[in-house]
Structures are given as C-alpha cells and as structure tokens.
Design a protein around this nucleic acid. Structure first.
Length: 628
DNA sequence: GCAAGGTC
C-alpha cells in the first residue's frame, strides 16, 4: 500500500494552486462536511528521497483555527474588576465556525504517515501551522510533521518546496501566541475600565463601547497629534532674496541657497551687500544626465497609499477590490510586504499576457521587443508572497468601475517596473552675488520610458536655461526682497496615516485599513472632505471624544517616571521588539508575556488611580456647548 | 458589549 501524506495550506486558494502543480493538473476534488470553501484534493506525487511515491490529500484551513478567550466566569463585564483580566485564566478553543475544518484535519491525519504544513512562511503562518499540527496530532499522535518552505506559487518553486521540507519554527509560533494573549488581556482590561467609567460622564457616551487596543489607540494618537499641530499653528513671516536675469529672451530666476530667514533687517542688509557688489559671478555650471527612477515592485502598503492618492478610494475599499481581483485570478496575492521579484518568476511571460489590451498592449509589446528591463529590488522580503502583479489579462468589460481602476493601476505599475528609468539632461548653475550664493536649474526630458505607461508619475521639462560659462560675470536684471508666511500643516490624510502606521510598526499590511475603520466606527475620528472634483482631499479629524481620550491619557501618565502614553506607538513597538526576541530564541514566551503585562499593568493601575483626569477630559470636550 | 491577526 502506498503511503499517504496530508498537506494543509493556510487558505483554499493556495491548496488548489499547490495541488494543481504537484498533481500536474489531474486531481480529485472532494467537498468536506460543514464548510463550503475548504476542499480536499487527492492525487499522487513522487516526493523523491525517503518518501518516494505517495498518495496525497491537499486541504487547507481558513486562517487561524483557534481563538483565545477568558474562562466563562470572566466573560461578563461585571464578573470581575477589569484589572483582574491581567491574570484571569484564558483558554484556547477552536472557533465555532472552524470546527468542521479542524475535524477534517483530524480525520485525514488518521490515515496519514506524515503532515506537510503549507501555511504562509511568516510569523502568523507559523502559528497557524502549529494549530494545524495540534489537530493532526489529536487525530494521529504518531504522525510525522514537516513544513514546506515556499514564497510564491510558481510551479518549479512549489515542487522544490514539496521535496525539501523543513521543520516548523516553534519560536515564531510562540511569539504569535504571546501577542495573542497580550492583545486580549490588555485590550479587554482597558476597554472595560474606560467604558464602565466614562459612560456615566456624559449622555453622549451612554451605551457606547469605548474600546482600547494596542493598535487602534496609537492610530488615533496620530490623527489627534496632527490635528493639534494644525490648531496650535501660528504663522510666521519670513523674507528671502530673489535674483532674476534676462538673457537671450529667457528669464532665469535664481533661488537663494539660504531659502529664507525670519529676520527682515538681516535680509535687507544682505541684499544691500549684493547690490553693492553690482556683478554676480558664475561659480558652477554642471551639465549632467538626470534620471527619474521607475517605481519599485508593488507592496500592499504602497498599493493602499498610491491607491488613495490616485484612485481616490479609501484603503479598505482598495483591499476589498484587490481581493476580489485576486480571487478571480487576475492579480497575485494582494497582501505582501515584498518589493523584490524572485528570479524564478518569468516576468516576460506576464508582460506578454497584456498584449491584447487597447490601452497598454502596444507598450507591453515594445517591452518584449527589446525595452524590457529587470525590475529594481527594494529592501523588503516577507518570504511569503511576491510583489503584487497582474497574473493574466482581463477585458475591462468584465470588471466594475473600481475593479477596473485598481487592476489598471496594478498592471501599469508592473509594466513600469519592467521598464527603463526616464532620462533627461539637467543643468545646475550656481552664482555668487556679494557674499550670497544662488542657484538655478533646468531640465530637459529626453526619454520618457516608464512614464509613458505609469501615468501617475509626473516629470516635465522645465524652462530651458540660457548659456552660462563658469567664471563669467553678469549684472542681474533684478534683485529684491520677497516676503512670505509659513503655512499650517494640513489634517492627516489616510495615505499619510498608513505611512505613519507602517513606519511605527502599528498593525500589519493586512490590518492597517481595519484599524482606521475601527476608530471611525468608535466615533473617535471622522472624515471631512475638502475641495471638490479631482482636487478633493479626504482628511481625518478627531471627534471631541477622540481628543478627550488622548488628552486624558496623556494627563494620566504625565506623572509617571517614563510617562509613556497609550496614545503613542512606543508600547506597541516594544511589544514587537520582544516578539522578535522570542523568534531569535533569546526570550521565552512566558518571560515576554510577564514583562509586557507588568509594563501595561503599571499604566493600568495609574489610570485607575487618576481616573478623574480621564473623566475631566471627557467632561471638558463632551459636555460643553459645541461652538462650531 | 472588550483586542489583533489570519481569511471567505
């Protein structure tokens, strides 16, 4: 009898893709009882080595199998003081809707010699792999456990992963387990505390859940921080020197190297010295080729940021649309941090698929006819997914308006990646006038290259400069003082917020949009539109409640020795660093959970003691008459 | 009625 091997992927789409490659396209599909998405695919495969020819069942989970929650007696909000949740017993259970999937794995494991885990090769994937292993062991305690290491579903790569399995990374799974426990305890404790305490403060808050989360609060913090900077902004007047020369019928404006200063008297004196010198001297003439680099391969964060900017869709909508395009097989997996293409991917083949398109088909043909360039490589690789790229061409008539726009963006971005940089000729002139230095620069775009397909980037020729020679003297046509005012920053936009979250490690590429949606849902922030038409900008403004929470917590911790506010990203960042230590094997899961809980408990106790400050902030913002 | 993270 041939040996049987059970393979389990993180999601149905991967199970199907891997089964297709391993089986060479011929497999049997069986539905499972109780879940319409998960399927079992059966086929034979030669693993080589000591495994040899085996019969395979390839199936999947749908993300995590289990969830962590408090024991039943702690679930009621009045069952215990919120602070008790830092120690209350918790248990891990298979989610109700995942029970049929877990059962399928236990059943299949019974007849299998080995389990091959095919979850994504990232931290969460390692934890999901451990959940799968636990179910398989419950069905068959003697089953051998292996893990396939793969980063895309290209055929040769998949086959290699199947034949060279590695071990599950227990450290990474433990790091995720620590995160899960911390987020649950801390989130629930603070949410119950502030909800129960603040509901009584204002009629506005009655019946309202005022949630706290280690990601949603720093997200709110960014919005409030920008809002306050706008509110507190005081414009300042500055002065500069403008020098202009007319020559060969062209007008050249020279910019001051000092840009501007805030002291009018000093600028006046400097200008007078210039005028006294009468003549300016050309100190540098640089002619050099300039180029504008083609974009990097597309990541999720970039898709969300560029998408909000150019397609005018909020990040959640973009992700929904991108997922629909992925499920239909038009684009690759849209959740990725990777901005470098694996050498194994045949990029030219993907370019060729775009030939039929009316808008960019000819551009794709030109690439294959010799203009193709290997894409640039960024510095990120999540080792799980390739950059987002089109998988095949789809007629615009098959897509709705949003899908059409997002697909077009993904394709244009991909073709731009496979193109040459735009090239031009730049001229930089520097002059000395009195004791001050000024400069002017000109640009002539010579080859547009990627700009022809990537319509979202702009790079235009500037006005041409007349000829200058190094060392020559000339008398400027005009030189005078300019005056201006510093302008207030504008309110935070969603792409900016996503950039801040990414830079501070708040949330993952898959969840950032959810955290923003969450603070809207909780009525901590609202979206205001400014302008109209193409110049419309959506800005995030905190509500009175949002401002009150941030100000309240800032006041509460103001007295603490290292006063780290919950509205700042530092605590979450520290948690992330400790997770990395678990992955490296330098700390255990238990150590990290204890340390992090101690840290948050200190803030919690302090908040309880000074709860009046939190209440006062809410009263201040919510119970006074709105003035606008 | 609480979180954040997978995915449908």
């Amino acid at each position: 009898m041939t040996r049987k091997i059970l393979c389990v992927a993180e999601k149905p789409a991967i199970a199907r893709a891997v089964a297709t490659h391993m089986s060479g396209g011929s497999f049997q599909t069986h539905a499972i009882r109780g879940n319409q998405y998960v399927k079992n695919y059966e086929f034979d495969f030669n693993f080589g080595g000591s495994w040899g020819n085996c019969s395979v069942t390839m199936t999947s989970v749908i993300g995590h199998l289990t969830g962590l929650d408090f024991d039943r007696q702690y679930k009621g909000w009045m069952s215990c003081p919120p602070g008790a949740l830092f120690e209350a017993p918790v248990q891990e259970d298979v989610d109700k809707d995942k029970k049929p999937i877990a059962e399928n794995i236990r059943n299949q494991a019974r007849y299998s010699k080995a389990l091959f885990i095919w979850t994504d090769c990232d931290r969460e994937g390692e934890h999901i792999g451990a959940e799968v292993r636990n179910q398989a062991k419950a069905g068959n305690s003697r089953i051998e456990v292996k893990r396939a290491r793969f980063s895309n579903t290209e055929r040769a790569h998949v086959l290699q992963a199947a034949r060279e399995p590695v071990e599950l990374d227990e450290f990474q799974a433990n790091a995720v387990a620590a995160r899960i426990e911390l987020d649950l305890r801390i989130g629930a404790a603070f949410t119950r505390l502030q909800t129960l305490q603040l509901q009584a403060v204002s009629a506005v808050l009655k019946e309202k859940v005022i949630s706290y989360g280690s990601c949603q609060f720093p997200t709110l913090g960014f919005v409030v921080d920008r809002y306050l900077r706008v509110q507190n902004f005081k414009p300042e007047t500055f002065w500069g020197i403008k020098v202009m020369l007319q020559r060969e019928g062209k007008k050249v404006n020279f910019l001051w190297n000092r840009v501007h200063l805030f002291d009018r008297a000093v600028v006046t004196m400097m200008l007078e010295r210039c005028l006294m010198a009468k003549q300016a001297k050309v100190t540098k003439v640089n002619q050099k080729p300039k180029s504008k680099w083609r974009p990097l391969p597309l990541t999720t964060v970039d898709l969300q940021m560029m998408g909000s900017r150019f397609l005018r869709l909020d990040s959640q909508t973009i992700m929904k649309v991108a997922e629909a395009l992925y499920t239909k097989g038009y684009i690759s997996y849209p959740r990725t941090e990777t901005d470098q293409f694996d050498k194994a991917i045949d990029l030219k083949k993907l370019v060729e698929k775009q030939f039929p398109d009316n808008q960019w088909g000819q551009y794709a043909k030109d690439l294959i006819d010799g203009k193709f360039r290997t894409p640039r490589s960024g510095r990120h690789n999540d080792k799980a997914h390739p950059p987002i790229h089109p998988v095949c061409w789809v007629s615009p008539s098959q897509l709705n308006a949003n899908e059409k726009n997002v697909y077009e963006f993904v394709v244009r971005r991909f073709l731009a990646c496979c193109s040459d940089d735009a090239k031009g000729q730049g001229t930089d002139i520097e002059i000395q006038y009195g004791e001050e230095f000024f400069h002017a620069s000109g640009l002539i775009v010579l080859e547009r290259n990627y700009l022809d397909v990537y319509v979202y980037d702009k790079w235009e020729s500037s006005q041409q400069l007349p000829n200058f020679e190094k060392g020559e003297l000339f008398e400027p046509t005009e030189a005078n003082i300019s005056e201006g005012k510093t302008t207030a920053p504008s309110y935070l936009t969603e792409p900016e917020l996503i950039g801040l979250m990414d830079a501070n490690g708040i949330g993952t590429d898959a969840t950032m949009a959810e955290h923003i949606a969450k603070i809207k849902e909780r009525e901590y922030v609202v979206v205001h539109s400014r302008g109209s038409g193409r110049s419309k900008v959506e800005e995030l403004i905190p509500t009175r409640l949002g401002i009150a929470l941030v100000e309240g917590y800032d006041n509460v911790v103001a007295g603490l020795p290292n006063s780290i506010s919950l509205s700042k990203p530092f605590l979450r960042k520290e948690m992330e660093l400790r997770m990395v230590e678990i992955c490296a094997g330098s700390k255990t899961r238990q150590e990290v959970v204890q340390q992090s809980l101690d840290m948050y408990r200190e803030v919690f106790i302090h908040t309880q003691r000074r709860i009046e400050m939190l209440k006062a902030a809410c009263r201040k913002y919510l119970n006074e008459q709105p003035t606008s």
